[in-house]
């Protein structure tokens, strides 16, 4: 037991507002010399319900699921029990947020984040003295 837990319990209660429960979409992140490619699975999200935002160095991917279903549907077995996907990544400074290209096809988002020009690799010649 440390004293930290008992310090200002009220302040703690105020700040620990539970964030909305969301689905965490699985991703693949692959880096090559020119940039980073990110694939994310967001099944059930249509193009107009998908949001990709970059603010400062944080990249947010979010989407809302809309499934075609008849009225009065009673769930029997549920594996996807929430309707919102969200995942946030922190970009590093050598990535260029202004030239991000996005494709979205059948629930798969592909993001290409190139590196800024000067961060791209350059072969360094080793001089022999």
């Amino acid at each position: 037991m440390t004293d930290v837990n008992s310090v200002r319990p009220q302040a703690r209660a105020e700040t620990s507002v539970r964030p909305e429960e969301v689905l965490l979409p699985p991703v693949d992140v692959i880096e090559d010399a020119a940039g980073i490619t990110l694939f994310a699975d967001l099944p059930g999200v249509s193009r107009d319900r998908l949001g990709v935002h970059i603010e400062g160095d944080s990249l947010t991917i979010e989407g809302r699921i809309l499934l075609p279903a008849p009225e009065g549907l009673e769930p029997i077995h549920t594996e996807v029990g929430l309707a919102v996907y969200r995942r946030v990544f922190t970009l590093s400074k050598e990535l260029d947020p202004d030239r991000v290209a996005a494709e979205f096809n059948q629930g798969v988002l592909k993001l290409r984040i190139p590196k800024v020009e000067h961060a791209q690799p350059r072969r360094i010649a080793v001089q022999v003295a």
Binding site: P43, P70, G72, L73, P75, I76, H77, E79
Partner: peptide, 20 residues
Amino acid sequence: PAMNVGSTAQSVEIHAFAPG
């Protein structure tokens, strides 16, 4: 794929989350 199964009086509805 992840699956949700539900039913109504008239039908059984299966959603399989199989992107890409």
